[in-house]
């Protein structure tokens, strides 16, 4: 005689179950801030033909507040992204796997160099 199996439903709040899942959800939601800043840049460049409206958009207080909120999330995106690169970039030297620290570290180094170069160009 086949007895009835019990199927446990999956709660909609599954991502609140532990800290790792909460951090995962925050990581995924950083994409909203990435897109948000991209849209801000889009609006900014739409005024690329008029210095006045360009400056007004650039210095608009709402825009600044949004960006200041977005900045930690975008940085969180960068950090989680670079930390995950060793999972996708698998390199072997003979029997030895190239250390995940080297892979991630190279990205952090690139990040620093690129940021510095952009600052130099802009200032």
């Amino acid at each position: 005689m086949q007895s009835k199996e019990y199927v446990r439903p999956m709660p909609a709040t599954w991502w609140l179950h532990n800290i790792h899942l909460k951090l995962f959800m925050i990581r995924e939601l950083t994409s909203l801030f990435v897109a948000g800043y991209a849209v801000f840049l889009l609006v900014l460049i739409s005024h690329g033909d008029d210095l006045k409206t360009f400056t007004d958009t650039l210095l608009c207080p709402t825009a600044i507040i949004f960006q200041l909120i977005a900045l930690p999330f975008v940085v969180f995106h960068s950090v989680t992204w670079f930390n995950l690169t060793p999972k996708a970039i698998v390199l072997f030297r003979g029997e030895e796997r190239v250390s995940p620290r080297v892979i991630a570290g190279t990205h952090y180094f690139l990040w620093a160099v690129i940021s510095l170069l952009i600052l130099i160009v802009v200032l």
């Binding site: 990435v34 600044i64 960006q67 975008v74 992204w81 952009i118």
Partner: peptide, 20 residues
């Protein structure tokens, strides 16, 4: 993801902090 990770933070620093 790679482009945003490498370039976006410094851009935000420029437009949200340095310029204002």
């Amino acid at each position: 993801g790679m482009v945003a990770a490498l370039f976006m933070p410094i851009c935000i620093l420029i437009t949200a902090i340095l310029a204002p």
